[in-house]
């Protein structure tokens, strides 16, 4: 088959010279195509090396001894207990930190609270402190020899090395995520919509429910996703306070480490794949929510245009 279409220059027998060079595509920022491809290539290689490859290896290792071995490992009662515990801990820590995050962000940005800089700094503390140290602090407070130790013992309350301790440590570590997401967003949005609502006779709850919350919902959702991911994946603090009582206080990340130390790689990576899938599910849920929102919005605009034409 012969080509019938040739570039004009070729048809006229003109060799591509300096003229062609002038038509090189450049972007608004002016870098050349080569530079662009190097940048994109580097970013992709980096992503693959540090994100894609590890994720792939997890599943590869988990399935190394076949699908049968993989599912046998997943049916292990201790692993299932760890999974349930992880979901329970996240199920308690995330809602509590959503409430805290909303309250703190509201107080700081809309409520003109005194000393809000201190509150912001305090909310950042868990990000700055190593989780292991956070865990040790909890032990100092609630452990046998800790500050509240004698009192707790006298009242027959055990906190250290229990699920309660795991929950408390997780709440501490995941505390900043929602607040951190909301504070800049709400700061940027200001208070005039709330002021407009109050002059129209809305109550405090109505303002929050109908004005503030809809305006921050995407930021809030993102904060929840981050908070949830951290709550399910937390290792350091939980490792210290849980005492790693197998089948009782071990969350998924702790259980994975135990399996790994016992050279049970198939089980370790099978459990890891569960954790990875939980993360993927969280992200997918966020993505779907966003998409359905945008789709609903697009439909609405279309309906409008049809009505008008």
């Amino acid at each position: 088959m012969s080509t019938t279409i040739a570039p004009p220059a070729a048809r006229h027998g003109i060799p591509p010279g300096p003229r062609a060079k002038r038509h090189t595509v450049t972007t608004a920022t002016g870098e050349s195509a080569t530079a662009r491809w190097i940048l994109i290539g580097t970013a992709l290689a980096y992503l693959f090396l540090f994100l894609g490859l590890p994720l792939f290896v997890v599943f590869e290792e988990a399935l190394k001894k076949g699908v049968g071995a993989y599912f046998t490992a997943l049916r292990d009662p201790e692993l299932l207990h760890a999974l349930r515990l992880t979901l329970l801990v996240a199920g308690i820590a995330v809602p509590l930190n959503v409430m805290f995050g909303l309250a703190a962000a509201w107080a700081i940005t809309k409520g003109r609270v005194r000393g809000h800089a201190l509150l912001v700094a305090l909310a950042d503390l868990p990000l700055a402190v190593s989780p292991v140290i956070a865990g040790l602090t909890f032990m100092l407070l609630f452990g046998m020899q800790g500050w509240f130790g004698p009192w707790l013992k006298a009242h027959d309350i055990q906190i250290a090395f229990t699920v309660t301790a795991v929950v408390l440590a997780t709440i501490f570590v995941t505390l900043p995520f929602v607040a951190r997401e909301l504070i800049p967003l709400m700061e940027e949005q200001g208070v005039t919509e709330e002021e407009a609502a109050v002059t129209l006779g809305a109550s405090g709850w109505q303002i929050f429910r109908r004005v503030t919350l809809p305006n921050i919902r995407w930021g809030l959702l993102y904060g929840v996703v981050l908070c949830n991911a951290r709550a399910m994946g937390e290792f350091g603090a939980v490792s210290v306070v849980s005492g790693r009582i197998r089948g009782q206080t071990t969350t998924l990340p702790l259980h994975i480490e135990i399996l790994y130390n016992e050279y049970d790689f198939t089980a370790a990576f099978a459990a890891s794949s569960l954790l990875a899938m939980l993360a993927v599910v969280t992200l997918a849920a966020k993505h779907l929510l966003e998409r359905s929102h945008h789709a609903a919005r697009a439909r609405l605009i279309q309906e409008q245009q049809e009505r008008q034409s």
Binding site: E195, A196, V198, T199, L200, G201, S203, R210
Partner: peptide
């Protein structure tokens, strides 16, 4: 309170509810 004074307030930058 502002909600009980039966006033209508119009702001310089409109302050419309952006999601409505």
């Amino acid at each position: 309170g502002p909600g009980d004074r039966r006033i209508g307030f119009v702001f310089q930058h409109y302050a419309l509810f952006r999601h409505m």
